[in-house]
């Protein structure tokens, strides 16, 4: 049961295609796991469609349609299109993430960034200072307390964590903006694996976290 969903503004940015790549990856992974947000996505897409339908119009020429006809009429009839189905997680890994990793979680070469915390930076090409990484928290380990200059989105892929704002289990999303201070902790016997996307450097509080910051590479 997923309790923490995508925000409206994030869904709208995804629907309009304006979300940076790492964030879009996270959204698409959540959507694969969450029926409720698939419904909300359809709703936001309907809104986008309605905006197109009611938008301003600019002149197009007859000639453009004639050229289009020439192009499509020279095409060979296409093969059958009938068996397309929605993507499904593979070994518990959402399909778009699998596409980036090329494997499941067990084969990942984690890098230790501090006691009880490992990361794998995803090769997601992006702009605007964005970084996408997988984090693996050992049970009971407390991440350094931190706040954000920009925003951080986290999707739980395995296990669970808790912080001041609640408990997050598989499929749950946390969107933290620059007002949030939090200190997540993996709260079961199992490792917690998350997809975390940041669009600006995290601001850690305290000396030790500051020393750790270079290891995060952010």
């Amino acid at each position: 049961m997923i309790n923490h969903h995508l925000s409206d503004e994030t869904l709208w940015a995804y629907v309009t295609g304006s979300l940076p790549a790492g964030h879009a990856l996270l959204v698409s992974c959540h959507l694969e796991l969450c029926k409720a947000c698939q419904g909300r996505l359809a709703e936001a897409e309907a809104l986008a469609g309605a905006l197109l339908q009611t938008s301003e119009q600019l002149n197009t020429s007859d000639e453009l349609f004639e050229r289009l006809l020439l192009r499509v009429e020279s095409e060979k009839p296409s093969r059958s299109l009938s068996c397309i189905s929605r993507p499904k997680p593979r070994q518990g890994v959402p399909s778009d993430l699998w596409g980036v990793l090329g494997q499941g979680y067990s084969g990942i070469k984690w890098k230790v960034v501090g006691p009880g915390i490992r990361q794998f930076v995803l090769p997601v090409e992006s702009s605007e200072g964005e970084k996408a990484r997988l984090l693996k928290l050992s049970p009971g380990y407390m991440t350094p307390e931190h706040s954000h200059h920009g925003s951080e989105m986290t999707l739980v892929l395995k296990g669970s964590f808790s912080d001041e704002t609640g408990r997050y289990k598989v499929g749950d999303v946390q969107e933290a903006d620059d007002l949030v201070h939090h200190q997540p902790v993996a709260d079961t016997e199992e490792d917690c694996i998350c997809l975390a996307v940041t669009d600006a450097p995290l601001a850690f509080k305290g000396l030790l976290p500051k020393l750790l910051q270079p290891f995060f590479g952010i």
Binding site: A42, E45, A46, A48, G49, L52, Q53
Partner: peptide, 8 residues
């Protein structure tokens, strides 16, 4: 979906 949404 509506036609507009599909085309969008």
């Amino acid at each position: 979906a509506s036609a507009s949404t599909w085309i969008y």
